[in-house]
């Protein structure tokens, strides 16, 4: 029994460190990345994964149905909302004319919008033209 508890403790420990590392990456990304889009990109992904790890560790630590189900629900909400929210912010920023970093090598959305009547600064840009 004791051995299992130790293994679980170590597992929780590793999860928390991993989660904290991902959060650190997100914070560094906000500070270091050159433009809105790159900042958004690294922030959204690391926060989603980092929070997921932390909440999972939380779940394992308490091992109660009430706590675990709430933690799982929170993970689900985060996995649903953060990607969509950051996609919306990125798209709105692009369409309202926020300029890309000078080192950007490819602007796929711009290419996709070029042939159509839409373009940057147009409000009703077509949705996901592939």
């Amino acid at each position: 029994m004791a051995g299992e508890t130790v293994i679980l403790e170590v597992f929780i420990f590793v999860l928390m460190i991993l989660g904290a590392l991902f959060m650190l990456v997100a914070a560094l990304g906000i500070l270091r990345m050159p433009d809105v889009f790159t900042r958004m990109s690294c922030n959204a992904k690391s926060v989603t994964i980092g929070l997921g790890f932390l909440l999972f560790a939380f779940m394992l630590h308490f091992r109660e149905l009430g706590v675990g189900s709430r933690a799982l629900a929170t993970i689900a909400f985060i996995a649903l909302t953060i990607p969509v929210a950051s996609h919306r912010i990125g798209r709105s920023a692009y369409l309202s004319g926020v300029s890309l970093w000078e080192g950007t090598i490819r602007d796929e959305l711009g290419e996709a919008l070029k042939g159509t009547r839409e373009g940057p600064h147009k409000e009703d840009a077509g949705d996901e033209k592939r």
């Binding site: 969509v84 798209r91 709105s92 309202s96 409000e123 009703d124």
Partner: peptide, 12 residues
């Protein structure tokens, strides 16, 4: 006045 919602938001 805001950009059109788009599929991702509607799905969410």
């Amino acid at each position: 006045s805001m950009p059109a919602p788009g599929e991702s938001l509607l799905a969410l």
